[in-house]
């Protein structure tokens, strides 16, 4: 155990400032490396393996992954302190899956609160609830992915079944109420039908306290990264949904549930 939370070490692959789609206000996202799922459409394939990866981009070497400390991450994150103060923004952990590095994630969120900024995580909640529970005292917003209610299909497209995820969603709702926000990547061939989206929305609507759901249209911006990593892109040939389709799902959600539905982040 490190003496101070600022000395806790962890592995990240990026920090993005001025994130305005992942939690309230202006935020910085810290991307942690390593994920439990292998979603076929994942736009950050470099986030999946915990191992540090060396690739070549335009003939130049590039390294995905960096071991660092909470202190070093917070130095970067707090460069935008004034923006967080004005906008109610702060720190968001994403990934990968921050639950894969619980000690590091807990320390980062605790550091965020020490600095007086809001904290959020973007997570699949695919972990024993005890692991998640450790983060909650320092967490303001949980942006949780629910990708499908059908476990078979979930497993087929993400590599994991969804029982644990749905179970955790219920427990989290009981603890966080409206600070739990459900996010759904809308992916053609996987869940991009009104009935599948509505099934997720109804599940979310039944969670006590949960008020918001975000539908995130599938995009192909991560495609080139697969090539660099020397991996096949399982979604090759799948085109993003036509404009208006996801907007239509949003309307259906608004009609069929009491949730506030937002297109995009």
């Amino acid at each position: 155990m490190a003496d101070s939370i600022y000395d806790v070490r962890g592995r990240i692959f990026d920090i993005q400032r001025y994130s305005i789609h992942d939690g309230p206000g202006i935020r910085s996202i810290v991307f942690l490396k390593g994920c439990f799922l292998r979603c076929r459409w994942c736009c950050n394939p470099e986030s999946q393996a915990y191992e540090i990866e060396k690739v070549t981009v335009d003939g130049k070497p590039k390294i995905y992954g960096e071991d660092t400390t909470v202190g070093a991450v917070m130095d970067e994150v707090m460069k935008d302190a004034a923006y967080y103060r004005r906008s109610g923004g702060g720190l968001t952990l994403s990934g990968g899956e921050c639950l894969g590095q619980p000690e590091f994630s807990t320390a980062l969120l605790a550091a965020g609160h020490e600095f007086g900024i809001t904290t959020a995580i973007e997570s699949t909640a695919f972990a024993p609830f005890e692991v998640i529970e450790g983060l909650l005292p320092h967490l303001d917003y949980y942006l949780m992915d629910i990708k499908h209610v059908d476990s078979e299909k979930h497993k087929e497209f993400t590599g994991r079944p969804n029982e644990l995820i749905l179970e955790n969603a219920k427990k989290l709702a009981a603890r966080l109420g409206n600070r739990l926000i459900i996010r759904v990547p809308v992916v053609p061939t996987f869940n991009a039908t009104e009935s599948e989206i509505l099934a997720i929305a109804r599940f979310a609507d039944a969670l006590p306290g949960v008020e918001r759901i975000h539908l995130l249209p599938y995009h192909r911006l991560g495609m080139d990264k697969y090539a660099r990593l020397g991996r096949p892109y399982a979604m090759a040939g799948i085109v993003p949904s036509p404009a208006g389709l996801v907007e239509g799902f949003c309307e259906a959600v608004r009609r069929e549930t009491s949730l506030e539905c937002i297109l995009g982040g």
Binding site: Y18, I20, P24, G25, I26, A82, Y83, R85, R86, S87, G89, I262, G264
Partner: peptide, 23 residues
């Protein structure tokens, strides 16, 4: 334009201006 979408987009945009000025 997507950075200014919705009311939240406008609010964040305003916060950006105000903070740049604070600095």
């Amino acid at each position: 334009p997507s950075a200014l979408a919705g009311r939240a987009g406008l609010q964040n945009f305003v916060s950006l201006i105000r903070t740049y000025f604070e600095n």
